[in-house]
Each structure stands twice: as C-alpha cells, then as structure tokens.
C-alpha cells in the first residue's frame, strides 16, 4: 500500500513540481495528492499563477535622464580606455545612434 504524501511533503516539493524537475514517479505521486487534497490544489494553482504574473512583467524603459547619464558615463569610459591604449577600433568610440541627450 502506498501512503499518501502529506501536505507538508507536498509543500517541500512544490518548487520542483512546478519547475518540472522531478522524476516521473514522484511527480505522479504529487499529482495524485493535488487531485485529492483541495488545499494543496489551491496552493499549487495560486503559486503557479504567482509565477505567471511575475513572468509576464516587462522591464520598463530606463527613464530618459538616467539612460542619458548611463550612456555618457559609458562613452567617457570607452574614450578613456581608447585614449590610453589606442587599441579601440570602429568608426568612433562615441555611442552615436543611441539616445544620448
């Protein structure tokens, strides 16, 4: 007779279950537990939804003033390195074509 997994065990394995990292046998045991335990079903479902809403978040554009200061700092760094080593190539060390304001 196979004992049912406890809810606590299920919680400990939840990550690997959601990330599909378990061996098939344990995965099947957990699936059965989820089917039979309403609480664990809800926890599994809402944890999956939690991951889904975060994965759907797009990184917003860097604010223009911060982006501008970043590119200026990068430009200076490149110019310093190119100036001291003379090893840079390409048409220019300036990040032209990018949004330097």
């Amino acid at each position: 007779m196979t004992l049912l997994l406890t809810c606590k065990r299920f919680l400990h394995e939840l990550n690997d279950y959601l990330d599909d990292l378990l061996d098939p046998q344990l995965k099947e045991e957990l699936r059965k537990h989820v089917d039979e335990c309403p609480n664990c079903w809800v926890i599994c479902d809402t944890t999956q939804k939690t991951l889904t809403v975060y994965k759907g978040m797009e990184a917003q554009a860097v604010p223009a003033d911060i982006q501008s200061r970043l590119m200026e700092a990068v430009r200076r760094k490149i110019a310093d390195k190119c100036g001291s080593s003379g090893s840079c190539h390409g048409e220019h060390p300036e990040p032209s074509g990018h949004e330097v304001k």
Binding site: A59, Q60, I78, H89, G90, E91, H92
Partner: peptide, 17 residues
C-alpha cells in the same frame, strides 16, 4: 576586440533588465 559600438549595443540590450 575593442569595438566600442558592440559594447554600447550590449548596454542597450541589457540596461532595462
């Protein structure tokens, strides 16, 4: 290899994240 534009492309690609 010293291509400045290549590095700024990398910056543009990853700055948001």
């Amino acid at each position: 290899a010293g291509d400045a534009d290549a590095f700024t492309d990398l910056v543009n690609q990853y700055e948001r994240r």
